[in-house]
Amino acid sequence: MHLFLFLLFGGICAGGAVNLLIQRKTINSALSLIVVMGSLALIYLLLGAEFVAVVQVIIYAGAIMVLYIFVIMLLNAGEEEQAKGSNVAKIFGIPGLFAGGIIGIWVLLQHRPAEQGVKIGALYGPADQVGWMLFNKYLLAFEVTSILVLIAIMGAVVLARRGNN
C-alpha cells in the first residue's frame, strides 16, 4: 500500500517535472509545477512530515505559484522560442543521461522495499514539535528570516514601481 502510494505520487511528480520541460507555453509549465508541488506534499505526508506538507501546499502551491501566474498573465507571456540544441549538450547530455539511468536502476535493484520507513498514520513530524524547535533551537535564524522577508518585500515594491528609470 505504502509502495503503491509512493509510486503513484512519485510518478505524478516526475511526470509533472517532465511536462514542465516539454511544454512550450509558460502558463502550462506553471500549472505542471503546481502538480509537482501538490504531489510532493503528499509524498511529505508519506514520510511523516505533517507540518512541511501543509506549508508546502500553503506557501509553494498557494502563494508562490499564484505570484508566478499573476506575472505570467500580467506580462502576457505566450509561446517561447526554444534554444537550438548545442553540441556541448549532445556530448555531455547523452552520456550523463545514461549514467543517471544506470545509477537509478542500480539503486532500485540494490535496495528492496520494506527495509525501513514510516508507517502511514504514524506521523513523525507533528506541527507542535516543529514549532517548539523553531522557537527554541532556531530562534535566531527565525528572527533573521523575518528581516529577510521584510527586505524582500521592500525590494519587490521598489523594483516593480513604475517610473524609477
Binding site: V52, I59, V71, M133, K137, T145, V149, G155
Partner: peptide, 29 residues
C-alpha cells in the same frame, strides 16, 4: 529520526518565497 531537516525545509521555503517576490519584480522591470 530528527526534526532539524523539517526546519531547514521551512527556511528554504521562506527564502524561495523572498526570491520569487524579488525575482518576479525584477522580471517585470
Amino acid at each position: 529520526q530528527t526534526l532539524d531537516g523539517h526546519i531547514f525545509v521551512f527556511f528554504v521555503m521562506v527564502v524561495a518565497a523572498a526570491e520569487a517576490a524579488v525575482g518576479l519584480a525584477i522580471i517585470i522591470s
